[in-house]
């Protein structure tokens, strides 16, 4: 039901947002086991502004490499393909959806801060759990609420209604969205990421970040994103567009084997990393 409505609505959009061609090429290349570093560097170099963003992020304190990275090629072999993929993907998406409409209720800057923080917490939890591919978990966290941007861009009036409803009725935005659209941002985000042929595990983790115990195949990763999302509100940096702290899914919490002590220990490194990662937001120049 929900899904059909969603598909119906999205098909009404004449031009669905696409990933910039260069970014899409790069992502495909990084996923191909045989692509060489120069091939990928060539693809990135097609977009001058992407190239400079990649270099800027590669040299940022977030990665902290003790040396200067002057070429894209070097950035690729030093940071590795997963990091490069993440840098390209996140900078492209954020650049594409960063323009704020001066909307009072949905501040894009606040939104991407929320997303970035959620990405970093997801990564930290994964590291703590010994999950190898923690860089992908960063992307899951970063893109978990991506659907909100899509709704805000393509169904702006209705989305503003949902935001107002969430505010006045003091309900979570996802519930307000559901009341108005018959679906919510998690499904929208997932659908779009799927179209961009991002890894299925990432797509599913985004789709189930509100109900992580409902999909077995991504129980772990969706739980990480869910708990990270919850912790974002507790830390109080950024905003997802609503003020209601969502209820924490107990099963997800238990699955991660966390406790107050561990969270307390993690908080400082998380905030430090957040500060060093603002390059991802493309506004490093602003803060300088």
């Amino acid at each position: 039901m929900e899904n059909e409505k969603l598909k119906e609505r999205l098909s009404s959009i004449k031009s669905l947002p696409t990933l910039p061609v260069v970014a899409s090429n790069v992502i495909q290349l990084t996923q191909n086991p045989d692509s060489t570093a120069p091939e990928i560097a060539d693809a990135i170099s097609q977009d001058q502004s992407l190239s400079s963003k990649v270099l800027m992020t590669a040299n940022s304190a977030y990665y902290g490499f003790p040396g200067k990275i002057n070429t894209i090629n070097y950035a690729i072999v030093v940071l590795g393909l997963n990091n490069i993929k993440n840098i390209v993907l996140s900078t492209s998406i954020m650049e594409r959806f960063s323009e704020s409409d001066d909307d009072f209720l949905f501040d894009r800057k606040q939104f991407w801060q929320h997303s970035l923080l959620c990405g970093i917490i997801s990564k930290k939890i994964s590291e703590h759990m010994g999950i190898k591919n923690f860089e992908e978990m960063f992307m899951c966290g970063l893109l978990h609420d991506f659907g909100k941007v899509v709704l805000d861009t393509y169904f702006h009036e209705e989305f503003v209604q949902a935001l107002e409803m969430a505010k006045t009725q003091e309900i979570p935005i996802k519930d307000a969205e559901y009341k108005i659209f018959g679906f919510n941002h998690s499904g929208v985000g997932a659908l779009l990421l799927k179209r961009w042929s991002l890894p299925p595990s990432m797509v599913k983790s985004v789709e189930f970040h509100h109900k992580p115990d409902e999909k077995k195949s991504v129980k772990r990763t969706a739980s990480i994103v869910h708990v990270a999302d919850y912790l974002c509100r507790r830390i109080g940096i950024g905003s997802g567009g609503d003020d209601v702290t969502p209820t924490l899914n107990k099963k997800a919490w238990n699955l991660l084997e966390l406790n107050a002590e561990i969270i307390k220990k993690m908080t400082i490194p998380i905030i430090q990393e957040f500060k060093s990662a603002t390059g991802f937001l493309g506004n490093e120049k602003d803060s300088e």
């Binding site: 570093a37 120069p38 902290g64 490499f65 003790p66 040396g67 002057n70 070429t71 090629n73 070097y74 072999v77 030093v78 590795g80």
Partner: peptide, 22 residues
């Protein structure tokens, strides 16, 4: 390589090329 580079690579935990091809 410099020790801080080695330390950085060890922290990343993956095979890392530390020479710029270009």
């Amino acid at each position: 390589p410099e020790e801080k580079v080695i330390t950085w690579v060890m922290y990343q935990g993956r095979w890392t090329v530390i020479t710029d091809f270009e």
